[in-house]
Design a protein around this nucleic acid. Structure first.
Length: 882
DNA sequence: TGTATCACG
DNA sequence: ACGTACGTGATACAG
């Protein structure tokens, strides 16, 4: 086999990669973008050139002979950013794990090592490739050596061998050195001959072939060029010397040591995991043994479930079953299951078709048999349409992964889980079904493909759950998982299935009303503007406001003028158009998002709205709601609040709305153990008034509403880690004064200050913060060398435990309310959660007991020094429950 | 598809 | 000196 040697300029490529790629972090906050870029580049080179030998050369910190010869060499270079500096050692570690040779030598640059190794390679019959971002290396090109220069970041390379250099530059590779001797190099601070640039340089070299040749023929030169050369010939010779890559560095190299390919992929994969490069894992396995990646079809077999009795017996004995339902696209209330796949061992996979679902009832309904799965809430809801309640949902790998590694914002797709834990390739939903408008549906797939995919999911569930369980225990979040998150699956499933009743006519009426207002405002705005335009387009609106009407530009966005509510607020006295636009925006929002949006999504079967509640989205532990989002229904402004009139209780029912009072501040008081704040809550004082009286040093009875709302802003600001600047902006006061307020606050609530400091310290040390139930949020930003990033990290650190603990608490309350309602055989249902608020649709006869259950379970969800306080409101519509 | 905007806790 | 409050989701526009 032909011997091929690739020599990489480590410094050059890592630099290119660093500037070409956006920021990346691993879980611990280590910057990884340059390492990632380098690695992908390395793979690309390996794929394209198939080298038998590889070496990576690095610069050393020590000054080189060039610095000694010429003190200004590379002077004025920008210092390497810390974000890049920290990536060198991990990269070297990675190369070592690849068993890729590394070379570096005091007193020489990577270039010189490359020159030396390439020469050695040529002499020993290798085809040599040099990989760098530095065009200087073109001087090393020859018929045996190809120089690959990165272009367009690091995505592509340009190939230069001897012929190519001649063709493109009409000079030999070595003449490149002479050219640089003449024209110098700004980036290395090589002077060259002042006044000689590329054009003159090339002309001279074409004629006299080298710097020395030019100097010898100095008499034949003319005019200013002659003068320049005469005056600077030493400089030219010195510059040429600086530009010449040394090819006989005193380094002991045995080319056999550069052999590539003999490495342990497991060690590389392990390090990829540490770096967070899960997507690169298949590349390594591919090099080693591609087969390993695929689920071996012989490892499982798929059969139609015939001997039900036998399977039921086995599941009952094991008390465990893996389950995954596959359903058609369609109304969530309809029966639309295509198949249910089940297994007890992860390898014998059985499926059952819709008609025979009831055969599985004994297993599904069993509270003894633990259900293991992936996105179990989907299975639960699918089965609900058949009036089958999936009992004992015990382990959902998506939820487990959400708790274990909430960093991987890349959702908790089974494909990612399989790759991370098992190094197995499972198709992602996108790979299976495609994306966009052309996406297939489950019912479109061949059974073969579908069943293979589902089997792989079940196999993954089977093989990862024990690893995950030990991770959960290690992190001390097994309690959170088994007692809060898993029981919540059923609660959310029920909420989704129940939905909330909507008064469609009322919604239409509101729509008509809004549309009339919009029409009127539109006309008035056009009148003032003097022309018609699209008010909804920030771009067009910007032109009208700031160019046509000449209003002052307050703020700019990436793309143009900012026209957001803050900006309009500042402009409102300057033109009557502003208030109209503000109002127009409001009504348009109400109409399109809430009226039209909700109308589109009312379920025709139930005439109710069935929002999805997602348990694995937020970084803090909150639940999120989609299609529609019922957690942002207007309430603050009266006009928007009207939307709540359409959310109504079913006949014979009332809505019971229970919300925690100041739950986040209570959590803060609890976590910080600040006596002052705990005391305020213990005595049921108005916390904002108390804060006002303390910070502004007035008697509680003298706290004006202005002072109270200032204190309220401070209280909330503290929870988010707000700065004096932000507070000043909010309260319209000087920054200095805001600063005094915050300082005053921390003086009065000194334990809170303590707590914040400690939390930040812990986050910096551990890389994460935790809630009272040990829910973890990783904060890589806190180690950033970028001031702004780091400060953001600090704010996350301060906020996440508070928001997250509040989320933990209401989740517990939900589970307990649900259990109580079930226990007492009540028909009233929990139907909504809005972060600190629960809504139960209560049967009128059950109203009193429901009220007491909700209040009780919410207030006693967690025992704290600071008691939790719940406000209850009853109404026929959500609007009335205020 | 990304950006701007705005609704909620 | 930096730039400035946490967490979400839906809609409309524009390239």
């Amino acid at each position: 086999m032909d011997k091929k040697l690739v020599i990489i300029d480590g410094n050059s490529i890592i630099n290119r990669a660093f500037y070409a790629l956006p920021e990346m972090n691993n879980k611990e906050g280590l910057k990884t973008n340059a390492i990632y870029g380098f690695t992908t580049m390395l793979f690309k080179i390996i794929d394209t050139y198939k080298p038998t030998h590889i070496s990576v050369a690095f610069d050393r910190k020590a000054p080189t002979f060039r610095h000694i010869e010429f003190e200004d060499y590379k002077a004025g270079r920008k210092k390497m950013p810390d974000e890049l500096k920290v990536q060198f050692e991990p990269l070297k570690e990675l190369l070592d794990r690849f068993q890729i040779n590394r070379l570096e030598l005091d007193g020489y640059e990577a270039d010189d090592i490359i020159g030396t190794v390439s020469k050695l390679g040529e002499e020993n019959g290798y085809k040599v490739y040099i990989v760098t971002g530095d065009k200087d290396a073109i001087q090393l090109a020859s018929d045996k050596t190809t120089t690959l220069i990165t272009k367009k970041g690091i995505g592509e390379v340009e190939e230069y061998d001897f012929d190519e250099v001649i063709k493109r530059y009409e000079m030999t590779p070595t003449q490149f050195i002479d050219l640089k001797g003449l024209m110098g190099d700004k980036s290395d601070n090589i002077p060259g001959i002042p006044g000689v640039g590329e054009k003159t340089g090339i002309k001279l070299i074409k004629e006299y072939s080298s710097v020395e040749g030019i100097i010898e023929n100095i008499e034949n030169l003319k005019g200013s060029i002659k003068k320049k050369v005469e005056e600077n010939k030493e400089l030219a010779i010195k510059s040429k010397m600086l530009a010449t890559i040394v090819r006989d560095v005193p380094i002991d190299i045995n080319l056999d040591d550069l052999k590539y390919g003999d490495f342990d992929p497991n060690r590389v994969v392990e390090y990829f995991r540490y770096l967070g490069f899960t997507s690169l894992i298949p590349r390594v396995i591919e090099i080693d043994d591609k087969e390993k990646l695929n689920f071996d079809n012989e490892n499982y077999n798929i059969k139609k479930l015939e001997d039900i009795e036998c399977f039921v017996k086995e599941a009952s004995n094991k008390k465990e079953v893996l389950i995954k339902t596959v359903r058609k696209e369609g109304n969530i209330l309809e029966k639309n299951i295509l198949y249910i796949f089940v297994s007890t061992d992860g390898s014998n996979i059985y499926y059952i078709e819709e008609d025979n679902i009831s055969d599985l009832k004994e297993i599904l309904l069993s509270k003894e048999i633990k259900k293991f799965g992936y996105n179990l809430k989907d299975d639960y809801i699918a089965l609900k349409s058949y009036d089958i309640k999936l009992e004992n949902m015990y382990f959902d790998i998506a939820i487990a992964e959400y708790l274990i590694d909430s960093m991987s914002s890349t959702s908790y797709e089974c494909s990612a889980i399989a790759m991370k834990y098992l190094t197995k390739k499972v198709k992602s939903t996108e790979e299976l079904l495609g994306k966009g408008v052309k996406a297939k549906k489950y019912q479109d797939l061949e059974f073969e493909e579908l069943s293979t995919h589902i089997s792989q999911i079940l196999s993954t569930v089977y093989n990862v759950n024990s690893i995950m369980e030990s991770n959960l225990k290690e992190m001390d979040i097994d309690g959170l998982f088994y007692h809060i998150e898993m029981p919540l699956v059923e609660v959310l499933g029920d909420m989704e299935h129940e939905g909330i009743k909507v008064d469609k006519e009322k919604l239409n009426e509101l729509g008509t009303e809004f549309k009339e207002i919009i029409k009127r405002l539109e006309k008035e705005i056009y009148d003032i503007a003097g022309e018609e335009f699209n008010i909804n387009s920030p771009k067009q609106l910007g032109v009208i406001l700031f160019e046509k009407l000449g209003l002052p530009v307050v703020k700019k966005t990436k793309t143009g003028y900012s026209t957001n509510a803050d900006v309009l607020e500042k402009l409102k006295n300057q033109s009557p158009i502003i208030d109209k636009i503000t109002e127009y925006r409001q009504i348009v929002k109400l109409n399109s998002t809430y009226v039209e949006g909700l109308l589109n999504i009312i379920n025709p079967i139930s005439n109710r709205i069935h929002s999805s509640f997602n348990q694995t989205i937020t970084t803090t532990g909150r639940i999120s709601s989609t299609e529609p989002n019922l957690q942002n229904i207007p309430v603050k402004l009266e006009i928007g609040r009207n939307i709540r009139k359409v959310f109504i209780a079913d006949e014979n029912c009332k809505l019971v709305d229970a919300d925690y009072s100041q739950v986040e501040l209570r959590v803060l008081a609890q976590m910080s153990q600040d006596e002052n704040m705990i005391d305020a809550f213990k005595h049921n004082e108005d916390i904002h008034t108390k804060t006002a009286s303390q910070v502004f040093d007035v008697d509680a009875k003298d706290v004006t509403s202005e002072l109270r709302s200032a204190a309220k802003a401070i209280n909330f600001g503290i929870v988010y880690g707000k700065s004096d600047f932000g507070l000043a902006d909010d309260l319209n006061i000087p920054v200095k004064q805001a600063k005094e307020y915050i300082e005053g606050y921390f003086e009065k609530y000194d334990k809170i200050k303590n707590y914040m400091d400690q939390t930040i310290e812990k986050a910096t040390e551990d890389g994460y913060v935790t809630t009272i139930f040990n829910r973890r949020r990783y904060i890589p930003e806190i180690k950033s060398s970028n001031f702004m990033e780091r400060n953001r990290g600090k704010r996350f650190a301060m906020n996440a435990p508070i928001q997250g603990s509040a989320a933990d608490i209401i989740k517990i309350a939900m589970v307990n309310v649900y259990k109580k309602l079930e226990e007492k055989n009540l028909k009233s249902k929990l139907i909504l959660q809005v972060h600190d608020e629960l809504i139960v649709e209560a049967i009128k006869e059950e109203l009193d007991i429901v009220k007491s259950i909700v209040k009780d379970e919410m207030e006693n969800a967690v025992l704290m020094d600071v008691h939790l306080d719940v406000d209850l409101n009853i109404g026929d519509s959500w609007y009335e429950t205020k």
